[in-house]
């Protein structure tokens, strides 16, 4: 808190002389906090592990270095990478389908208020269904492998695409719409040249959320449908049932990294596409 106050007081004065210095210093300061927290957490983890080790239950909370060892063990590593590949495949397939479906759904709803009134409630219903309640049924209907996993992924990740695309399409200012109307622009032109570009920022916000949920969907799907190529969810269950603590933790870390990676990549993609004219922060 104190540092940031000093920053904001001194920065303007310095900026006139050397514009780069304050920014570089600021970014260095920005990293100090998260890194400190990281080390504190590792420390706490060691403490917790020591407690469990004393109770002879070390496999529940293995030491961080044991996890690191498991993670870098060639056999475990190749199992993890195979599982990662399959989970990513499921997540991305589901995500692409959710994107296409979600945007189409939203575009249809944006065409008339009666369409929105008729269709939007079902998007909300979709959001409210506890997916886990549907999972056994999906297994029966679609088998217990890739297809079923993708369907769970779609169901989980669809809603943000629908709602954020619709929100974006409707965010167009009235006068901008009238500008097009005055030229007699068709619905398609309006959509292509006005509504869709205007919706891009919120579509990317939806996309980032959906991508994170798609990873969740792929792993949840895995835990219920164990046939076919095993993903991270399958691996996690196997490690858990065999009480392979360090391996279990490394699988959890890989799954988390996948989630973070997806979040970062889609955030970056959004800035790449619309960052030129839109400020996300």
């Amino acid at each position: 808190m104190a540092t940031s106050t000093i920053e904001s007081v001194t920065a303007p004065a310095r900026r006139t002389v050397a514009p780069k210095t304050p920014r570089r210093k600021k970014s260095a300061i920005r990293w100090v906090g998260p890194i400190a927290v990281f080390f504190v957490m590792i420390g706490l983890w060691y403490g917790l592990s020591a407690i469990y080790a004393a109770k002879d239950q070390g496999y529940f909370v293995p030491y961080p270095h044991q996890v690191l060892q498991a993670l870098t063990d060639p056999d475990t590593f190749s199992d993890l990478m195979d599982a990662l590949l399959h989970s990513t495949e499921v997540a991305m397939t589901g995500l692409v389908i959710a994107i296409v479906l979600g945007m189409l759904w939203a575009i249809v709803m944006s065409q008339a208020s009666w369409l929105e009134r008729s269709l939007f409630p079902y998007a909300v219903v979709l959001q409210c269904i506890p997916i886990l309640a549907l999972v056994p049924l999906i297994g029966i209907l679609f088998g217990y492998n890739f297809q079923a996993r993708v369907i769970v992924t779609i169901l989980i990740s669809l809603f943000p695409m629908v709602s954020m695309t619709l929100f974006g399409l409707q965010s167009v200012a009235k006068q901008q719409r009238e500008l097009f109307q005055l030229q007699g622009a068709s619905r398609l032109t309006l959509l292509r040249k006005l509504q869709f570009p205007a919706a891009m920022p919120s579509i990317f916000v939806g996309l980032r959320t959906s991508a994170g949920l798609a990873v969740v969907g792929a792993i949840v799907g895995d835990q219920f449908f164990q046939r076919g190529n095993a993903g991270l969810g399958v691996l996690i269950q196997v490690y858990a049932s065999r009480l392979m603590g360090p391996q279990l933790y490394s699988a959890i870390i890989v799954a988390s990294l996948l989630g973070v990676l997806v979040f970062v990549v889609f955030g970056w993609l959004g800035r790449l596409v619309v960052g030129r004219w839109y400020d996300f922060s």
Binding site: A173, Q175, Q176, E178, L179, F180, L182, Q183, G184, A185, T189, K193, L194, P197, A198, M200, V274, R276, W277, Y278
Partner: peptide, 27 residues
């Protein structure tokens, strides 16, 4: 007919050139 609104109503993703071309493009 030309119509100038109270706000400039430019499309934020188009540069000046693209914005100025818009109406002719729609026509």
């Amino acid at each position: 007919i030309g119509y100038v609104f109270q706000d400039a109503t430019l499309l934020p993703w188009r540069d000046v050139q693209g914005n100025v071309e818009l109406l002719a493009e729609l026509a």
